[in-house]
């Protein structure tokens, strides 16, 4: 399981990413979409941190903000000992080789006018001073590493299937020997039988190169397979973070419970006997989140305090973090114990 002596490769503290809303004749700022609102977590060296949540909860924005693909509104992001939160784009450029990204849609994230070879070589052109021959050798190596036939180096992305395109994206991310890779829903666009191929590849590469992943996904079964620890996001905040085994066997936050119970189980015997918690209603708008706890509008265990005071995100047992009044040490937890 999680090795406590491990050091954090990535430290995120109070990360905020707000997108302003302009309205009226003068286009004045009248509000903000709080896509990521005070999120804190660590990603340990060599681990895979799963980041799960429903669409619109801010998980992709969070991943992009950590790599500074956005100018963040506030907070600290420390990667490999350097705080990049407020770093200028030119300084950031020298840090880019350590942190890379694999995107969701392999169709849209590869330039259709570049050959596979050129796509994988581009980071080498930008960031290294290798000779042409060295680059060619490196591209070949990368193609072998991700299981693409070298003979296809001169082809264009359209000639490849979805799974193979995702391999090209992974090879490109690996080109500069990164330490940290944000995988933003890398398998969401792939068929079931191809998903397993890509996940196994990511695991092999992690072992071979000692990579650290932030694995963003909405597929809770797949995250259970790949991640060491898992953070659950809801409406811009992390509601629970726990090691894999604990999170799936004993979820604490009511949202995590509901989310896990909503995942369809591929076994009719279990599917028919299992108690489902069906949440009512929809996720509120992140531009206008409810007062108090963000989840209070849909929570089956809601208490009066939830509609008033925002729960603090705190460590309830070693390695387990949760933001819920039910688990706050000073307060109302006892009253509603055993509510579900």
């Amino acid at each position: 399981m999680l090795d406590q002596t491990n050091t954090a490769l990535v430290r995120v503290r109070d990360l905020q990413m707000h997108f302003p809303i302009y309205s009226g004749l003068l286009r004045r700022q009248t509000g903000a979409v709080k896509a990521v609102d005070s999120v804190s977590f660590d990603v340990m060296q060599g681990e895979t941190l799963g980041l799960v949540g429903e669409s619109g909860c801010g998980k992709s924005t969070c991943g992009r903000a950590i790599l500074r693909l956005y100018d963040i509104t506030g907070g600290e992001v420390t990667i490999d000992g350097t705080d990049i939160g407020q770093m200028s784009q030119s300084d950031l450029r020298t840090k880019r080789p350590t942190m890379q990204m694999v995107f969701q849609d392999p169709q849209a994230s590869l330039n259709p006018r570049m050959t596979v070879e050129a796509i994988i070589r581009e980071p080498l052109d930008e960031h290294t001073k290798l000779s042409a021959a060295e680059k060619e050798a490196k591209v070949g190596e990368l193609m072998d590493a991700v299981g693409l036939n070298r003979r296809f180096a001169k082809r264009y992305p359209h000639a490849f299937s979805g799974g193979q395109r995702q391999r090209i994206g992974i090879a490109r991310a690996l080109a500069l020997n990164p330490k940290f890779i944000v995988c933003d829903e890398p398998i969401a666009a792939l068929d079931v039988s191809i998903q397993a191929q890509v996940v196994n590849l990511l695991e092999d590469l992690q072992e071979k190169y000692g990579l650290t992943y932030l694995f963003i996904s909405h597929d809770l079964s797949m995250v259970r397979h790949i991640a060491t620890r898992i953070a659950v996001m809801y409406l811009g905040k992390i509601v629970e973070l726990a090691p894999r085994a604990e999170l799936y066997s004993d979820p604490l936050h009511p949202y995590t419970k509901a989310l896990l119970s909503a995942v369809p189980e591929p076994d009719p015997a279990i599917a028919q006997t299992r108690e489902r918690i069906v949440l009512q209603g929809d996720v509120p708008s992140p531009a206008n989140p409810p007062k108090g706890c963000n989840f209070c509008t849909r929570c089956p265990a809601v208490m009066p305090v939830c509609k008033d005071i925002e729960p603090t995100y705190q460590e309830v047992t070693p390695g387990r973090f949760v933001a819920c009044h039910l688990f706050e040490t000073t307060g109302t937890a006892e009253k509603t114990a055993g509510y579900i």
Binding site: V192, R224, Y248, D267
Partner: peptide
């Protein structure tokens, strides 16, 4: 080939 949400966790996906 599909991972499960409960029960034994496969070390490697088929």
């Amino acid at each position: 080939t599909i991972p499960k949400i409960s029960g034994e966790r496969a070390r490697r996906l088929t």
